[in-house]
Amino acid sequence: MTRQDALFQFLLRMGDNTLILGHRISEWCGIAPVLEEDIALANTALDFIGQTQFWLGYAGEVEGKDQDADRLAFHRDAWDFRNVLLCEMPNGDFGQTIMRQFLFDAWHSIFLGRLLKSSDPRVAEIAEKASKEVAYHLERSAGTVVALGDGTEESHARMQAALDYLYPYVGEMFLSDEVDQQMAEAGIAPDPATLREEYDALVARVMAEATLNIPENRYAHKGGRDGYMHTEHLGHLLCEMQWLQRAYPDAKW
């Protein structure tokens, strides 16, 4: 794998995470539990779509095959997507959505923090813009997880169920492969495996405050970030997201 190929894969991972999770959050449009949450969810989705434009835009340039961010977002099939499985998991109830958000935000904020010092100035620039938004995402999702974990008996039970369901998808965010090794060697991005301790400390702090128990089983589902095996959920998401572009390939929108 050349350095350029590795960089392309790395950028797809960053951009596909935000694209797919942003899409999931946007599915909440108009049906959140309270008006303030409608606004906050739309705002988070909007941040992610903006970040996607940067990451996938740069990915297309690095690839050098004349694919812009839209082409990459709307014309790849599931096996070419490089998001972690966590991002494509369905919304479930609001508890599952906000738990997924927190588990991702905690990783995202730590990871972007490291990218601020990336040897690739474009990566550092995107990370700088995104990390400001993500600091707020984390504050909000952590606060909501705490409130609902500590809230009523029902909200506590729902949040614990959400954590139990999603926790097996956490480990994938910390796997390393050849792409990560190349990025680490070039000083472009950290090796994700080195971030687990910091992540675990952050998650443990929030879950303690939320009175939720972190599952002991650390088994990790994987296959998203290398595209080997996504979940069944991704195909349905793509059917909806890519339909217009695929149905009318000659159209300019």
Binding site: L19, S26, E27, C29, G30, A42, G50, L244, Q245, W253
Partner: peptide, 25 residues
């Protein structure tokens, strides 16, 4: 409008629509 947020044809159109829906809320 939410009916089309998940089917918006480009990232920019999707962002514009999401921003509009957010303004309306």
């Amino acid at each position: 409008e939410g009916n089309w947020v998940t089917r918006a044809p480009t990232l920019e159109r999707k962002a514009i629509l999401l921003a509009k829906v957010q303004d309306e809320a």
